[in-house]
Each structure stands twice: as structure tokens, then as C-alpha cells.
């Protein structure tokens, strides 16, 4: 684990924080994650996995939702506090050099897409973000995504902003349009499953970023599994978190 220092801990709303850390992450790739611990002793025992939300030399940002004990402790961190970080870990999104990249995010699944979009944008690729949330107040970092100059397609479950319903509906409509496309999706399992189905039906390649409870993040405990499509289990921390959708769905 490497020691990082809290530069800023920005409360974005009641449940969401942007944690900006100073420290060096060696050659990270979009879609990879880090294991984070920011408390002394062994309670909580395990480090917590988080996607790389943004990265610059000597700077790492995490976007997180306050869920339980670990994230509550992270939310309370003050500037100057030390944080242990292990990473970058796992397999990120595949390299894309042509065509259009469609990012599909549900809820906090938006986390890995800021840096991903930034990097893809640098390559001059066209990016279209389909972003679903419960209500208009649950969208995160919308202004920053707009500033990247990518296309945004919002949907909310209650219809308070954008399309009313699940993000897969507008996605389906869009996928019918011609052109070379690839989908990167991150969000809750039911959303990933729905995206995988739409992509398969329309013959579009899709990659999904998975979640699982993790102890080590390094393929050592075999604790972080998700059922594979064929037989057996896939280890999210070493074979993922990003995998081709058909491996799971």
C-alpha cells in the first residue's frame, strides 16, 4: 500500500463525495480500481475498492457514495489526512482507436467514466454518455461531463430530468442508428444485464464493469467472484472489473 494525502474532500450532496488525493499511481488505465484504507487498526478490517474517477500525475480522484462504515470514515477525512492506496488494479476498459464509444452509467456507476471519457476524448473519439439516476438530484458531476464536450443522454426513474425510465430505453433507440460502436457499461447488475441484452440483440460489442465484495484486490483470496456464462466463476479483481459482457450475461 502507498500513502496518499487528502487534498480535498468535497461533499457533492448528502450521500456523495469527491475525494482528491495526492500521491503517485503507477501507469493506471481507465476502468481500473484501487483498494483504499483510511483508518488505523483492524476495524474495519478490509480495504475498500473504488474506481479511478480522475487521474493526473500525482493526483487521484475517487467519487464515492456513503454506504456503510468504510465510506462513512472516508467521508469524514480532512485535508492532510493520510490514506493507504493499493493499485492500480485489475483490467480496465479495452483500447479503442476508431468508431464511437457509448458509455452507459447507472447511479454511482458513473465513477469510472470521467477519466475514461477524458482519455477517449484525447484520442479524438466520439463519445456518447447514457446516464441514468433515480432523480435529477442524483446526477453527479454533470457540469464536468458537459465541459468535456461529449454527448449526454440523461434518464431518471421519476422523470424529473431527461427520459423517464431506465437508461436502456434511449440506449436501444440510439443503437439502431448506423456506425461502428462499442459500449462500456458500469452500474447495478440488473442494468448491466439489460445493457448486455440490448447490445447482443443489436450486435454491438459491450464491456461491463463488475462489482463484488473483495478482500485483497490481487487475486489471492478468490473471494470476489461472479458467475460466468459458461461454467464456474470469474474473479472480479484479477479478470475484471471490466469484462466482455458475454462472459457474464
Amino acid at each position: 500500500m502507498n500513502l496518499f494525502t487528502v487534498k480535498e474532500n468535497r461533499k457533492l450532496s448528502q450521500r456523495y463525495h469527491l475525494l482528491i488525493l495526492e500521491g503517485e499511481l503507477e501507469n493506471p488505465l481507465p476502468g481500473q480500481f484501487v483498494m483504499v484504507r483510511a483508518w488505523p487498526g483492524f476495524d474495519p478490517l478490509l480495504a475498500r475498492p473504488f474506481s479511478i474517477h480522475d487521474h493526473e500525475p500525482d493526483k487521484l480522484s475517487l467519487l464515492f457514495e456513503v454506504k456503510g462504515r468504510g465510506t462513512k470514515l472516508l467521508a469524514a477525512l480532512e485535508p492532510g489526512a493520510k490514506v493507504e492506496v493499493l493499485g492500480p488494479l485489475g483490467q480496465g476498459f479495452p483500447e479503442v482507436n476508431s468508431g464511437e464509444v457509448i458509455l452507459v452509467a447507472g447511479g454511482i456507476g458513473i465513477a469510472p467514466f470521467f477519466w475514461t471519457a477524458k482519455k477517449l476524448k484525447e484520442k479524438g473519439l466520439q463519445i456518447n454518455l447514457f446516464y441514468g439516476a433515480r432523480t435529477k438530484n442524483d446526477f453527479l458531476r454533470l457540469k464536468e461531463f458537459e465541459d468535456l464536450g461529449i454527448s449526454l443522454n440523461l434518464s431518471t426513474e421519476d422523470g424529473s430530468l431527461g427520459f423517464k425510465g431506465f437508461v436502456t430505453e434511449p440506449l436501444k433507440g440510439y443503437l439502431h442508428e448506423p456506425g461502428e460502436k462499442i459500449i462500456f457499461a458500469c452500474g447495478p447488475m440488473p442494468m448491466l444485464s439489460a445493457v448486455a441484452k440490448v447490445a447482443k440483440d443489436l450486435g454491438v460489442r459491450a464491456y461491463v464493469s463488475l462489482e463484488a465484495h473483495m478482500a485483497c484486490g490481487l487475486g489471492m483470496c478468490l473471494g470476489c467472484v461472479v458467475k460466468r456464462q459458461e461454467r464456474g466463476y470469474l474473479h472480479v479483481c484479477s479478470e475484471g472489473p471490466v469484462v466482455p459482457a458475454e462472459r457474464v450475461f
Binding site: 483492524f42 476495524d43 474495519p44 478490517l45 478490509l46 463484488a212 465484495h213 473483495m214 478482500a215 483470496c221 478468490l222 473471494g223 470476489c224 467472484v225 461472479v226 458467475k227 461454467r231 464456474g232 466463476y233
Partner: peptide, 20 residues
């Protein structure tokens, strides 16, 4: 052996419960 279905780990104070 394929091992057990997930979740395979749970955290308790200062402890880890595994069913790999």
C-alpha cells in the same frame, strides 16, 4: 473445483469470514 457461489466473504470487527 469451482468453489462456492457468491458472496464468498463477509467482514466482521477485526475478522473476515470466508466461504471460498
Amino acid at each position: 473445483r469451482e468453489g462456492n457461489p457468491p458472496p464468498r466473504i463477509a467482514e466482521t470487527p477485526c475478522g473476515l469470514i470466508n466461504a471460498i
